[in-house]
Design a protein around this nucleic acid. Structure first.
Lengths: 225, 225
DNA sequence: GTCTATAAACCGATAGAC
DNA sequence: GTCTATCGGTTTATAGAC
């Protein structure tokens, strides 16, 4: 597969395996103050994540974030330098969570089932109201994300995972060998934030579980089957 | 197929055929002033359509619209009462154009090919930079659109067209008979504004024609084939 | 005099500073 | 917790054309 040029997903599909950027070392004991800071940071990001999912970046206000966390607006700026950085941190954590889900998948699953599991988790998260709409070239945050190395690093890592599974699934004939890897990758990303889920939920005719199954089915098997 | 509750698409899939809401009468001679107004209105909507496609509703400003049209901001309000109404009018025209494309399709095409033709046209429009991202439950305009009868009427009309073809294609076994009609309909809508097209274009590895083919293929046939 | 386009003013909201 | 500068949607008053 051809390496593709830089883009928002910083795709490294099927690139040569890279050494992990840095060895993971569990952080040594933090002082009480540090833990308190970390705790509040988590609370902030929880709120931001939900607001991003519900209203998107432009409609989310810093006043609102501060109010929902229960702290002063100025305190927000102690943790995050700007609204963009705040959103970028939240998105980075989302990618981290996705990577955790990916690495925790049973090794006994085949590549295709691993990919489906990721999409399943993403759609469930979406239906739960905590999945920001990641991929849009029109969004204000895209530029901030591109300029935020932690996000790009984590995205590379995730893409590496998914790219490996996509290649495996193609080798096994589970996914079309004639479909470019990035088309599969982007389609998986897109379906994970698919507005179709929202509209089906609004329609009220299907349970969440049914919606997940329908979306995974149309995503992987199409509509002609 | 089960009728589904009201939602943004006001689905009338497979509903009984309804008489057209009103007979179309070509408007009799317009005065010079009226025609001039109509001409400028078209120019405004052209700009709005492009800006909606490029930046979305929230990031589009009335200053920008006025500047690009080449008129004063206040003049915009002679034509459209608010920013929401302006966007709604633009979206309504887009649906009208889609209906025109649909009705102009050759009768010799089978139902499935008609559906594919519509998606093909939509993705081409998208790649051309004049396709606003219609379906998102998070968007500000959705409420305005729901409250704008001309849009809802046109959308019903379009949905009726597509719903009929979906039913035909299912009867012919061209589309899965076990897939709910609204899932197919929404998927078609979603794929028509798919961000995947943008990312593939940004990647630079594919021509527009290739992107269109890849998206139609994954949409209808999935990725496992 | 009337009608139209526009510049300028208005005002609420919001990011960020003190 | 308050303050300020800015931005953007909306309104109003004015200048100019017919």
């Amino acid at each position: 597969m051809r390496p593709i040029s830089n883009n928002i997903y910083l795709t490294v599909i099927n690139s040569q395996a890279q050494p992990p950027p840095m060895p993971i070392q569990d952080p040594p004991k933090l002082s009480f103050k540090q833990r308190q800071l970390q705790f509040r940071e988590k609370a902030i990001l929880d709120v931001v994540n939900r607001l991003l999912a519900q209203k998107g970046f432009d409609l989310m206000t810093m006043d609102e974030v501060a109010a929902e966390v229960g702290i002063a607006k100025a305190s927000l700026y102690k943790h995050f330098g700007s609204k963009e950085e705040l959103a970028a941190a939240s998105m980075t954590r989302l990618i981290e969570q996705t990577i955790e889900v990916a690495t925790s998948l049973s090794e006994s699953l085949c590549a295709l089932d691993k990919l489906k599991s990721i999409v399943r988790w993403a759609i469930q998260t979406h239906l739960g109201g905590t999945m920001p709409l990641l991929p849009s070239t029109r969004s204000t945050i895209q530029h901030a994300l591109l300029a935020y190395p932690p996000y790009m690093d984590k995205l590379s890592l995730l893409t590496e995972h998914l790219g490996r599974w996509i290649g495996e699934a193609q080798d096994l004939g589970q996914l079309s060998r004639t479909l470019p890897g990035e088309v599969i990758l982007y389609t998986i990303f897109a379906r994970s934030c698919d507005p179709v889920a929202d509209f089906l939920k609004m329609g009220g005719a299907f349970s969440d579980a049914e919606i997940v199954d329908l979306l995974i089915r149309t995503c992987f098997d199409g509509m002609t089957g």
